[in-house]
Write a protein that binds this DNA or RNA. Structure first.
Length: 824
RNA sequence: GCCCUGGUGGCGGAAUCGGUAGACGCGUCGGACUUAAAAUCCGGUUGGAGUUAAAUCCAGUGCCAGUUCAAGUCUGGCCCAGGGCACCA
């Protein structure tokens, strides 16, 4: 074994051998239990960044750990390779999106291999290739047949910069998730997935996911936004019309003093009197012009105009006016709101501004409020509410709704904030939506045997204001699968999130050309046992994937309810306290780290300083420290190489010193195994590697010559060390294993096991406290019983001195640990 | 405003059940080796008091109370930071 550590040399060597030997191939058939470890698949942007390195290292260590623990581990990798950057690159550099994408994939694959990741590359999935997107299209057709994919005219989010529509989930603070430019509203005919059909199950099944963080689950729950309330229908005085409203406060219904409809409300024109028409039209025109941002920026300052018509409150017979105001949202509930200014802050603000009447109907008997200064929104007792007076408002909700139900002007209603998923994109580089439009037959799905609908090659990427796909002379023109007549192909492509909603299923059966996946195989491998990725997908990708799983289950394609059993959301990689970004100039290039220190150092460092879920601050000194540590490990092994043999067996009886080292090794096995099992605390795992290495050096420092027993003990310690380190320092440990006479790959060895009796020190340190403060520490035999421990503590000279002249009130003995003497 | 997460040395962070606070590392200071440097090795490093040096003592896990023989850990109230949602009726 060489004296010096040359990571670049050994890393290259082993990567080649592993590839040739197929060390990391995963067979479908195995007598071992399965384990599916998965990282979120990357977008092939060009180069790996440190966030990737962190993500894939975490998952890789998990996969290797599980493999050594007797699992048949599926650990695949693929590419989320449709999307706008490829198209932008095409426009900028004139490169084909496909060529650009495949080149990036080739480069990043090389980088992933340099990191020493244990992927089964035979299962690689590339979403932009026809053998994959054929099945994305096939799945679309199944959803279409089931009524879960549909086309409708709707007001949609439009990003001018990207030249396409966006899903609600892709609009962040009124801006595009990708390019950050302001999103506008457009009225277009678009394709949707009916995710709302699963709103209740998506919410409810969050409870089935104890392996997910509460942060992600509450984000999803908030996004789904369930609320329970009632619909009331109010008759319009001047017209033969009704205005239905949704409310979560049916208990306040006697306090209605006006009603608000959204500017986009469907019946608004009919509800407007001729005298008010001009003002209402002006208000609506202005609302249409405003972007989401503008609506948000002047929040709290509410505006509106009266329509001139009135409704009757069936509970009181009172007549109240109708208004339009943009604080009522067309897309939520019925688009109309009953206003109770006394018990709703928004209605209160509006009523104050326009001097509308107020009527108190809920009171706190202890501390009544007249609601002149602010709305009272807490619980209370009903007043001014006819037969409901005196009822607790929580009970009145039900009673009042029931009355509406009985008398036929209302019902109980559960409402969700979640909207259907808009999947059309007016872009080229995506999976074409497989439908055609026929003048005679209408919307026709492309027959399954005609899939895939291939992307055309004869397109002009320089066009502005429309999708490049529309420039193809060959693509749109087609024949109707129904009547054979002339028809036009859909030119919209699917949101890339559709592709990434099922990729983890394809890994189970990546080469299937009859189906997206075999049912038995997917039921065998799925759900994913451990999913690792960034928190930024808490809603988007994770919600869509959960929806897909449930929809495909209902299509009979699979038999599970949730795709990801355990989810680890890793923190960001920072540098100098800020997120790494090119614009800030604080990025670190993985290639440079591989070149200067090797992949093992990079892997060790990225896991070392912070627990996976927390943000990680990159520091050059930290990398240096990890490199030094690996050198230290290397020296420890190489300087002892002739004394260490994998095959050496431990003698049954040992000297005290050797016994102590053996105990340290057992403690390390136990500690490291528990740390990995307990939320993958790799930072403490690595500190335990260091402790073990330090202990071996200390032990060695006390020895001048090694006898046979010493050699056996040292071999045990070092062979265990490299097994424990092998999931992290994958190349170094493989090299050491081979040099020390190990057979096969270290990555195929069994994980070390500890002996509970040896995984502790041979004696205990008894903590002696007086009044809860540590006063003495005594080495003691662990066999001592409680009384003996008490005697031992009381016999301490220190204790005698401090208890002199005082009364011992009480003595608490914690077995094997501590004695607390309470004195007065 | 609502929801989630967190608050421990100069820094990253550690501390199964309530039982030695600060593991391990980074930084830093001192020492050894060296002509010198790098590398390596050894030692100190929460604050304060104390001493020639030590021993030793006191305080200390965001703040204020409480429970307990014992609280970083449990309970109640508050403050701060980060993230998410936000005119959702």
């Amino acid at each position: 074994m060489k004296n010096a550590y040359f990571p670049q040399e050994i890393e290259k060597k082993w990567q080649k051998i592993w590839e040739e030997n197929g060390t990391f191939k995963t067979p479908n058939e195995s007598d071992k239990p399965k384990y599916y470890a998965l990282s979120m698949l990357p977008y092939p942007s060009g180069k790996l960044h440190m966030g990737h390195v962190r993500n894939y290292t975490i998952t890789d260590v998990i996969a290797r750990f599980k493999k050594m623990n007797g699992f048949n581990v599926l650990h695949p990798m693929g590419w989320d390779s449709f999307g706008l950057p490829a198209e932008n690159a095409a426009m900028k550099h004139g490169a084909e999106p496909e060529k650009w994408t495949l080149e990036n994939i080739a480069y990043m694959t090389k980088q992933l291999k340099m990191l020493g990741l244990s992927y089964d590359w035979d299962r690689e999935v590339t979403t932009c290739l026809p053998d994959y997107y054929k099945w994305t299209q096939w799945l679309f057709l199944q959803l279409y047949k089931k009524g879960l994919a549909y086309k409708k005219d709707a007001s949609v989010n439009w990003c001018n910069e990207c030249g396409t529509v966006l899903a609600n989930e892709q609009v962040i603070d009124g801006k595009c998730w990708r390019c950050d430019s302001v999103v506008e509203k457009k009225y277009l005919s678009q394709w949707f997935f009916k995710i709302t059909e699963y709103a209740e199950e998506l919410l409810k099944d969050l409870d089935k996911l104890p392996g997910w963080g509460d942060n992600v689950k509450t984000m999803q729950a908030n996004w789904i936004g369930k609320s329970e309330g009632a619909i009331f229908r109010f008759k319009v005085v001047e017209k033969d019309l009704e205005v239905p409203v949704y409310t979560t406060r049916p208990d306040t219904v006697h306090g209605i003093t006006y009603l608000v409809v959204a500017p986009e409300y469907k019946d608004i024109e009919a509800l407007t009197t001729p005298e008010n028409k001009e003002a209402v039209e002006a208000y609506r025109a202005n609302a249409r012009k405003m972007t989401e941002i503008e609506r948000l920026s002047n929040d709290r300052v509410k505006t509106g105009v009266p329509l001139g018509t009135h409704c009757i409150n069936p509970f009181t017979g009172e007549k109240f006016p109708l208004w339009t105001a943009d604080y009522a949202l067309a897309e939520y509930g019925t688009g109309a709101v009953m206003a109770v200014p006394t018990h709703d802050e928004r209605d209160f603000d509006f009523a104050k501004k326009y001097n509308l009447p107020m009527k108190v109907v809920i009171q706190n008997p202890e501390n009544p409020s007249d609601c002149k200064e602010k709305a009272y929104t807490e619980e209370g007792i009903l007043v001014n509410s006819n037969e409901f007076n005196g009822m607790k408002n929580t009970e009145a909700k039900k009673a009042i709704t029931q009355k509406a139900v009985d008398e036929g002007f209302g019902e109980f209603k559960t409402q969700y904030r979640l909207r259907d998923w808009l999947i059309s994109r007016q872009r080229y580089w995506g999976a074409p939506i497989p439908v055609v439009y026929c003048e005679k037959c209408g919307i026709q799905p492309v027959p399954e045997d005609q899939l895939p609908v291939l992307l055309p090659k004869d397109v002009d990427f320089s066009v502005v204001g429309k999708s490049p796909i529309t420039t193809s002379k060959t693509f749109a023109e087609t024949t109707c699968p129904c009547c054979g007549g002339k028809a036009r192909r859909e030119t919209d492509t699917m949101d890339t999130f559709v592709c990434s909603s099922w990729y983890y299923m394809r890994y189970a059966d990546p080469k299937n050309d009859k189906m997206p996946f075999d049912k038995d195989l997917i039921n065998h491998w799925l759900p994913v046992d451990q999913y690792v990725g960034g928190i930024e997908h808490a809603i988007l990708h994770l919600l869509y994937s959960r929806f897909f799983t449930k929809a495909l289950r209902d299509l009979g394609l699979l038999d599970f309810d949730e795709p990801f059993k355990n989810l680890l959301t890793q923190g960001m990689v920072l540098k100098d306290g800020a997120k790494m970004s090119k614009s800030k100039g604080n990025t670190v290039d993985p290639d440079e780290i591989f070149e200067n220190y090797g992949a093992d150092t990079a892997r060790l460092f990225i896991l070392s300083d912070s627990p996976p879920a927390r943000d990680f601050d990159w520091s050059d000194a930290g990398v240096e420290g990890c490199y030094k540590f690996l050198n230290r490990v290397w020296r420890l092994i190489s300087s002892n190489a002739e004394n260490i043999k994998v095959a050496y067996a431990l003698p049954t009886t040992l000297t005290k010193e050797n016994d102590d080292l053996v105990r340290v090794v057992h403690m390390a096995i136990k500690g490291i195994t528990n740390d990995i099992s307990n939320d993958f605390q790799f930072n403490t795992v690595i500190s335990k590697y260091r402790e073990l290495v330090n202990a071996i050096y200390d032990w060695q420092g006390k020895k001048s010559d090694l006898n046979d027993e010493d050699k056996a003990v040292l071999s045990f310690a070092i062979v265990t060390l490299i097994k424990l380190m092998s999931p992290v320092a994958v190349h170094l440990c493989e090299e050491a294993w081979t040099e020390l006479g190990g057979e096969g790959s270290i990555h195929a060895q069994d994980w070390p096991v500890w002996d509970e009796n040896l995984a502790k020190a041979s004696s205990i340190t008894l903590i002696v406290q007086i009044n809860g403060k540590v006063k003495d520490k005594i080495e003691a035999d662990e066999a001592l019983n409680q009384d003996e421990l008490k005697e031992l503590a009381l016999s301490s000279p220190k204790v005698k001195e401090l208890t002199e002249g005082k009364t011992i009130v009480k003595t608490i003995v914690v077995p094997k640990k501590l004695v607390n003497i309470v004195v007065k």
